[in-house]
Amino acid sequence: MRNLDILAIRSFVAVAETGGFTQAAPLVHRSQSAVSMHLRKLELALGLTLLTRSPTGAALTEEGQKFLTEARRILATHDSAIARLTGPQVSGHVRLGIMDDFASAFLPTIIARFQQKFPDVTLHVTTGTTSQFARQLGSRFDLVLATQAQSDLSGTLLRKEPLGWAAQGRPVATPLQLVVMPAGNLFREMAEAALREAGHAYRIAYEGNSIPAVEAAAAAGIGIAVVKQSTAREDLVLLDAKDGLPRLAPVGIVLHESETSHTDAAVKSLRKYLVQAFAGSAG
Score class of each variant (00 low, 15 high):
T130F: 09
L158S: 13
R233M: 02
L157Y: 00
R203F: 06
Q150L: 15
G184P: 12
M37K: 11
V267M: 06
E17K: 13
D240V: 06
E192M: 13
S11N: 01
A213Y: 10
V237A: 06
F278Y: 15
I6N: 08
A218F: 09
Q229I: 08
A8V: 07
S139F: 05
D264Y: 11
A81K: 02
Q168P: 00
F133G: 12
F106A: 09
S151W: 03
A134W: 04
R188I: 04
T77Y: 10
D101S: 11
T49Y: 01
I9R: 13
H262I: 13
T56K: 14
A183C: 00
R196Y: 07
E192L: 13
G223R: 08
Q150N: 15
H38I: 12
S33V: 10
D235K: 05
D120C: 05
V251S: 00
L145M: 03
R73P: 00
R40D: 11
S54A: 15
H262Y: 09
Q136Y: 01
Q116V: 05
A81I: 07
T77H: 10
G208D: 07
G252L: 04
E62F: 01
L238K: 13
H78M: 09
P119N: 09
G97Y: 02
S31W: 09
V125E: 01
V254Y: 02
G64R: 09
D264S: 08
L145V: 04
I211T: 11
L248R: 05
A249H: 14
A201N: 04
H93K: 08
G184M: 07
P88V: 02
A266N: 00
T18C: 10
N3E: 12
L239N: 11
P175S: 06
L178F: 06
E189K: 13
A16T: 04
G138W: 00
L158E: 10
S154V: 02
Q65S: 12
L145S: 03
H29Y: 05
G155Q: 03
F278S: 08
A24R: 07
I224S: 05
R40Y: 10
D79P: 07
A249F: 01
G223M: 03
A59S: 14
R196I: 14
V179Q: 00
I222S: 06
L186D: 12
K268A: 13
L107W: 02
S104F: 07
Q168C: 07
A193Q: 15
A191W: 02
G280T: 13
A217I: 07
S104N: 11
F21R: 04
D100R: 01
